[in-house]
Write a protein that binds this DNA or RNA. Sequence first.
DNA 1: GCCAACGTTGGC
DNA 2: GCCAACGTTGGC
Length: 137
Amino acid sequence: MVYWLVKSEPDVYSFAQFLRDKKTGWDGVRNHQAASYLRAMAKGDRVFFYHSNIGKEIVGIGTVARTAYTDPSDASGKFVMVDLADPIVLPKPVTLAAIKAEKSLTELPLLKQSRLSVMPIAPVAWRRLCQLGGVVL
DNA sequence: GCCAACGTTGGC
DNA sequence: GCCAACGTTGGC
């Protein structure tokens, strides 16, 4: 089991919408590093859902329901997307400020590579973030 | 609104 | 292949 984090601007696609949809296609990624992480996702992997720009907090968790396939919105045919399903709300959203304040989380790619929109999360960091978010998985 | 980080484009 | 110019992301 590998853990991930994906970013979305709530203006564009919010976690509330994901809760209504139950399942969503994660398309539109046009960065090669992010795309390589999408390709590495396995069915059943857990994914944090982070709101960028507005909120700046981890608001929930999803599960990879379908592994990488060609993103039809990409004319070049080179980029891929995955499907995410089973949204779970975090009882206590974990803010960027709280993550920054946590000494054990200073190595998170979220802090080190602010522009990356898909990234892996180490198991120990995943467990800590779940703790901060008030969920036990 | 500004700025840092960083990816892409195009001239040479 | 280098690098300047420019665009985008995302935090502040």
